[in-house]
Design a protein around this nucleic acid. Sequence first.
DNA 1: TTGAAAGCGCTAACAG
DNA 2: CTGTTAGCGCTTTCAA
Lengths: 337, 337
Amino acid sequence: MSLKDVAERAGVSIKTVSNVVNNYPHITPTTRAKVQRAIDDLGYRPNLTARHLRKGRTGILALAVPELGNPYFAELAGDVIDAAAEHDYTVLLDHTQGRRERELLVTQGFRARVIDGLILNPLELEPEDLAVRTDDAPLVLIGERRYDLPYDHIAIDNIAAARAAVRHLLDLGRRRIAFLGARGDRPSQPAHLRLLGWQAELAASGVPADESLVAPVEGWDRADGAAAMAALLDAGARPDAVFAYNDLIAIGAMRAMSERGLRVPEDIAVVGFDDLTEGRYGAVTLTTVSPDKRAIARLAVESLVSAIAGGRRDEERTPRELQPGFALVERESTLGA
Amino acid sequence: MSLKDVAERAGVSIKTVSNVVNNYPHITPTTRAKVQRAIDDLGYRPNLTARHLRKGRTGILALAVPELGNPYFAELAGDVIDAAAEHDYTVLLDHTQGRRERELLVTQGFRARVIDGLILNPLELEPEDLAVRTDDAPLVLIGERRYDLPYDHIAIDNIAAARAAVRHLLDLGRRRIAFLGARGDRPSQPAHLRLLGWQAELAASGVPADESLVAPVEGWDRADGAAAMAALLDAGARPDAVFAYNDLIAIGAMRAMSERGLRVPEDIAVVGFDDLTEGRYGAVTLTTVSPDKRAIARLAVESLVSAIAGGRRDEERTPRELQPGFALVERESTLGA
DNA sequence: TTGAAAGCGCTAACAG
DNA sequence: CTGTTAGCGCTTTCAA
């Protein structure tokens, strides 16, 4: 069933039907009614694929995040879907599992021209991977990592956010503040900025940064946090506070502490990062850095939509560094019940 | 850039290029090399939209879940994406917020013909909404609700699963077992089967089903669980166990208990449903019914893919009721540390 | 083994 | 205000 069928049934031309379907204004009410009638009778629905082929746009954006099992990305994805809907775009979701080859595949546009643009949160992708990108769909980057490439990048000020977290712990009188979430193998990678913030705030307060309090993690989930905390404690470290790369790691760490009979915050105060809903419902609610996810989603979508509409090629654009706000949310894991 | 450009550059016809791109076997190596060279030089990528228009299929499935913020659906979505990828399909994700009109919109195919099929987890949709469905993309239903309509339905045996949970509590000697997650306004709705299971298992054991231990919820998140538990306790109920509709409600309920100084499981044992990773990292780990999410995802995708391939119209199909397995995972919230 | 040509369903000129 | 026509880029008969 196509425009043609409707046209035949209504006794008009294809163009007229198209006009009705697209709400083209100058149509006599009689014609419109006649056509509408045929549309209803036949149950006609326009074929968007054909429309897209013709217009060169599909109305689909892709969002690629490392892992939907991480509530931060799930919540963000929901916000992106909502923001995209406001611009009449729908969202195709990918998860890369934080693996470089998957991230690479996504940026190289393996959906060639079914998407109009891509929002990517890279974890392992290297600048050179992005530099040789050939796909011409607009790309917007989100997340902690910065690439000095001609793509808009949306992320909160991670260093400032980390400093605020550490500042809060220092203000509470804690001095032996551990950082959970370094990557031993590649020190410059994802958690870099938050680690820098930790160092900077300690330095600014004249508190020595004890490297034995920096714990590496294997991944970014609760199990990794629990393992890292256990390793830290087993190695004999005695922190009085923990700043975790994210809430999941913080939650895993708290579990490890409770298994060892350590109390939060009396023995060890904990601050996380992401403000997951999950952190508000533990036995001890979690103090955390709360990035403005809605703003991140909105800015990413707006950036992409304008790039698509503008039809500018990436190389011709001046990339923007957009920084939504964040807030430190103080809860029981630092303040007590 | 199109096949035409490549053809011109290679000095062959469009068809030949198409053959190369599609790995059509009977091509002389010389020709293939020549064409491949042109493809590489030009950086040609096939336009999937055009291919789809021609073939009548898009290679995109849609998955519509109530809420990505609920980790159960986020985890399930990840599994569906993986299962779809095995069949060379990609997934377009929607969230309906459990609102009937959004669910309706999705089933009526507002993405008309950009998707080849739809997997839907309805919450509020009524049978009559589905009965008048006109969109002809195959549909597969997942989740607790059953509709007697010609669509495959994939869900674990909710009554049996609920009974196993209640059985476990009874075996531990609990007798005043509350059910958290009824919907006061519409008793027949989503949580129906699990409530039935609660009733059935109590009846089978000769334990009276105390209706004052059935607590309604406003929604399905942690806050709803906390509110329901608080209301139950404030009303003077003194359960010695709680079976929650899902893990989020159970987690919220445990938070409400801990705020009142009640201990889990000493004072009240708790069983949830969904087996979220989150439940394994609280101060008290959560006993829960663990549905086989991977199997649900796999079956849903396979059902859809075969319906698409078969080209059968819904009315002609014999709907199947597929039941993946589940397991009761016993943890601290019923067994203690 | 390769080429020519038709057509998937739609929109956008351009006419009338 | 409405009709005709030419493609968007691809696959697919049908020939050569």
